[in-house]
Amino acid sequence: MASSIRVRATSNGDITEVQALIQHPMDTGLVKDSKGELIPAHFIQELKFECNGKDVFVADWGTAVSKDPYVKFSFKGAKKGDDLKISWTDNKGASDTTTAKIS
């Protein structure tokens, strides 16, 4: 299966800009389906960005983060060619990990 994480990390001298898009339903547990039954909550709780052995950015998410979440941030201390590791865990214990090269 293709990774659920799409990431772009671009170095601009000192600063690396990271944009990530993750495929996930992010169900709140409050919405009913067409049969009138509640769709159980299913959402990413933790999303972590690791670079050179250090957590540079960690997100704790609730159900109010949009479906197929998007996040953007920047950090210092990395250079072109470094690996950026991205991983998430959801409330059902599912997870995914991918590694992107900073370009």
């Binding site: 600063i15 709140t28 409050l30 250090k54 957590d55 540079v56 950015f57 960690v58 997100a59 704790d60 998410w61 609730g62 159900t63 109010a64 983060v65 949009s66 979440p69 998007y70 996040v71 953007k72 941030f73 920047s74 950090f75 210092k76 201390g77």
Partner: peptide, 27 residues
């Protein structure tokens, strides 16, 4: 988001050297 069923939407932790700013999409 004050009017949501649960107010807290997202919380981000920053390391030293991470630029203090974030963009995301909320419900």
């Amino acid at each position: 988001v004050t009017e949501n069923p649960y107010a807290l939407a997202a919380s981000y932790k920053f390391a030293d050297g991470t630029i203090p700013g974030v963009a995301n999409r909320l419900k």
